[in-house]
Amino acid sequence: MTRTTELGLAAGLVRLANLVNRVFADVAREHGITPQQAQLLCKLIQGPVGMAELGRKLDLEKSSLTGLVDRAERRGLVRRVRDRRDRRACLIELTDDGTRIAFETHQVVCDELEKAAVEVPVADQERMTDVIARIAPDAPEQG
């Protein structure tokens, strides 16, 4: 039995999740934000997002998301803007500082995760990407 099969799928996935979480935590700390704020900023790179959609993307309950957005807003990273399609709703968008930090953290997280896999042959990386997409096709995005 190889070391990989001895580890087991579940344990391997947990180890991989821990690696991703550790990278997010390290990169966030370097930028003076929390890992949750880093994930929030990365979700907003593509443009403003409504609270309900943002909650789904981050897999957070409404009260937890509200607190996260409130703290990021106080730090000057995001702002609430009116949704032109629904005046009762607001969208969350990045500020200039939030945009800068979002792009920096996203790039560094991606770079660090790529470095972690540098010894893995490209064919195995491609297979791994395919397997992950099949295991978690609708999972909330993480980065």
Rank of each mutant, 00 (worst) to 15 (best):
A28T: 04
Q37K: 04
L91M: 14
A116Q: 04
D83S: 04
E141K: 12
Q125W: 06
A28G: 15
V108M: 13
P35L: 07
R80E: 09
A11D: 10
E114S: 13
N18K: 08
A52H: 10
L68A: 02
I135G: 04
V109F: 03
G47K: 10
R22G: 11
F24A: 00
V118P: 01
N21H: 08
S64L: 11
L9G: 06
D97F: 12
R3E: 10
R80Q: 11
V14F: 00
L77D: 01
R29E: 15
R127E: 08
R100I: 09
A17I: 10
M128Y: 08
L94R: 10
T99L: 09
V69E: 00
V49T: 15
R85M: 06
Q107F: 11
M1T: 14
S64D: 15
E73R: 11
R80N: 08
R127V: 07
Q46D: 13
T4E: 10
R74P: 02
P137F: 10
R71N: 14
T95M: 09
V78Y: 00
G47M: 06
L60T: 01
T34F: 06
D111S: 12
A136K: 04
L41G: 04
V81W: 00
A25G: 11
V49M: 13
M128W: 11
V23T: 13
R80D: 09
A38F: 05
R79W: 02
R22I: 05
T95E: 11
L9D: 06
T4V: 12
G67P: 06
T2H: 07
C42Q: 07
V120P: 03
G50T: 07
G8L: 06
P121Y: 11
C42E: 05
T129H: 07
A72Q: 05
A25P: 03
A72Y: 03
R75G: 07
L58W: 01
E126N: 12
S63F: 12
S64I: 06
L9K: 12
H31G: 05
G67S: 14
V49N: 03
